[in-house]
Each structure stands twice: as structure tokens, then as C-alpha cells.
């Protein structure tokens, strides 16, 4: 069963080459982020603490984190009841919902931005120009990914039987969704939340073109006058996003395990 020795050496060499291509830029970024500004010799952590001391950068971090939170909350509040409802009561429109949810995936984000610039100039006029108004755009953006995560976990359980059982025991529809369905799709909802956070924290297209100061926009601006500090902030956000995405793969594996044993 084990592959021949020659192949294993060949594989190891190629994997190392790939690893170099993928990890050298990250290490280079780290190297850059510990350099003293102005190419002076020596190493420093100042660039890493900069993100907590600089007022502009800090407010953009707060804005991005809040955006991520609001996006997740709104996404779950919209998507879960709709998807459960469609599954239970109007399965006819499930194809339509799927199509609508996956639509943003096929249209380039840039095109969406172009399309909604006018809408947003009106939105900011009504709701003020806090970056948090981006929540609405981001919910659309994360829709395809969240939809698939939640749909997968909904398919894994028999929603119809579960809710019929609960209804026959006297539960209201609200109770069915909150107490019966939600606990059974926690994995999927959590996965949807993780990928949403990851996407929102790195999103640049909407924020930059609609002129909101989120973390990526602030980083890009900062780079022009303080490269190392921008690198440090970028690396920090990258690590945060990576943690969320790796958490996601662990979630999906646990789900597979559950599926295999049942």
C-alpha cells in the first residue's frame, strides 16, 4: 500500500517547493514588520503595538470587528428562519432561495459595488456615514458561503420529522426553530459565522470604493507612510482570519464524524 521510495522523495521535494512559495511571503512580511522604520538597523516590536496606540488604526479595527459581529447576527437572523421555513412549509421555492443565495457568488463584487454606489449615497444620507451601514452589503456578500454551510447541516438532520414531533407535543413554531432545530444545526451555523467573520475582516472592495474606514482600508492607507506598522497589522488580521478558517475545517470534520456514526 505504501508508495515506492522514489515517489516519496519526489513528493517531499515538491511539497517543500510549494511550502516555500506559500510561506516565504508570510515570513517576509513578519521580517518586515519587525524592522525599525526608515531602514535603520535593529529589530523592534513597536510596529506591533502601533495598532493599539494609533487612534485611526484602532478605530478601524473596532469598526471591522463590529461589522463582522453585526453581519453574523443579521445573517443568522435572516437565513436560519427562512431556510427552516422553506424546508418545512414551502419546499417548492427552495430552488429559488438557493439560486438567490448563490447569486452573489457569480457576480463579481466589484460589479455589485458599481451597482449599489447610488443606493449607498442615499443610505449614508439617511443612516449617517458609520462604516456599520456596510452590514447590509456584507450580508449579501457572505450569503452564498453561509447558505451552503447551513444547508449542509440542515440536510444532515430530518427537519420535517423533528418539527412534526415537536409540534405534535405542543410546541409553537418559535419553539420549534429555537429549541429544536437550532441546537441540531449548531455546527453549520457556527461554520457559517466563521466564514462570514473571515470574509468581513478581509473585505476591501466595498469598503474602499464606498469610502468607509474598515481595517483593510486603513491598512492600505497606513502603508503609504508607515510600511512596517501596516505589515504588522496585516499579519495580525491574517492570523485572526486563519484561526477562524481553521476552526471551520475542524467543525466540518466533526460534522462528518457525526454523519458517519449515525
Amino acid at each position: 500500500m505504501t508508495p515506492p521510495r522514489g515517489f516519496r522523495v519526489f513528493r517531499a521535494v515538491l511539497l517543500l517547493a510549494f511550502a516555500a512559495y506559500f510561506f516565504v511571503p508570510l515570513l517576509a512580511m513578519f521580517d518586515f514588520s519587525t524592522q525599525v522604520r526608515g531602514s535603520a538597523p535593529g529589530r523592534t516590536w513597536d510596529n506591533w503595538t502601533f495598532m493599539f496606540t494609533d487612534e485611526d488604526l484602532r478605530s478601524s479595527i473596532v469598526a471591522s470587528l463590529l461589522l463582522a459581529l453585526f453581519t453574523v447576527v443579521l445573517m443568522v437572523a435572516l437565513l436560519v428562519p427562512t431556510m427552516v421555513w422553506v424546508r418545512l412549509r414551502v419546499p417548492r421555492v427552495s430552488r429559488l432561495i438557493e439560486f438567490l443565495c448563490l447569486l452573489p457568488l457569480t457576480i463579481p463584487a466589484l460589479v455589485i459595488v458599481v451597482g449599489i454606489t447610488n443606493v449607498y449615497s442615499w443610505v449614508t444620507y439617511v443612516l449617517g456615514d458609520s462604516p456599520l451601514v456596510l452590514t447590509f452589503a456584507y450580508v449579501v456578500l457572505v450569503l452564498p458561503y453561509s447558505y451552503r454551510a447551513i444547508d449542509a447541516s440542515l440536510s444532515a438532520i430530518d427537519v420535517a420529522t423533528l418539527s412534526e414531533a415537536a409540534r405534535s407535543l405542543g410546541a409553537s413554531w418559535f419553539t420549534v426553530i429555537v429549541r429544536i432545530v437550532l441546537p441540531n444545526i449548531t455546527g453549520g451555523v457556527l461554520g457559517a459565522a466563521f466564514i462570514s467573520v473571515a470574509l468581513v475582516l478581509g473585505e476591501y472592495v466595498f469598503a474602499s470604493l464606498l469610502h468607509f474606514d474598515t481595517l483593510p482600508v486603513a491598512m492600505a492607507a497606513l502603508y503609504k507612510n508607515n510600511g512596517p506598522a501596516a505589515m504588522a497589522a496585516a499579519l495580525a488580521s491574517m492570523i485572526l482570519v486563519a484561526l477562524f478558517l481553521i476552526g471551520l475545517t475542524f467543525l466540518s470534520r466533526d460534522r462528518h464524524k457525526l454523519g458517519a456514526s449515525s
Binding site: 506559500f22 516565504v24 511571503p25 508570510l26 515570513l27 517576509a28 512580511m29 521580517d31 518586515f32 531602514s39 466564514i195 473571515a198 470574509l199 478581509g202 473585505e203 476591501y204 483593510p216 491598512m219 492600505a220 502603508y223 501596516a230 505589515m231 496585516a234 499579519l235 488580521s237 491574517m238 482570519v241 486563519a242 478558517l245 481553521i246 471551520l248 475545517t249
Partner: peptide, 28 residues
């Protein structure tokens, strides 16, 4: 798992990483 992360990895951070690597004063 790493592939899953890197496939989502784009934008500002990625641009920075490559500037730090093979930019005018990049490490490489």
C-alpha cells in the same frame, strides 16, 4: 486546512506579503 485558508487569502494582506518578499526592499 492550510489550502482552505490560503484560498480565501487575498486583498490587502496578500499584496503586502508580496511587497515584503520581492518588492524593491523585499526579503528575497
Amino acid at each position: 486546512a492550510v489550502s482552505g485558508v490560503l484560498a480565501q487569502f487575498g486583498g490587502v494582506v496578500l499584496a503586502f506579503a508580496w511587497i515584503a518578499t520581492i518588492g524593491p526592499v523585499g526579503v528575497v
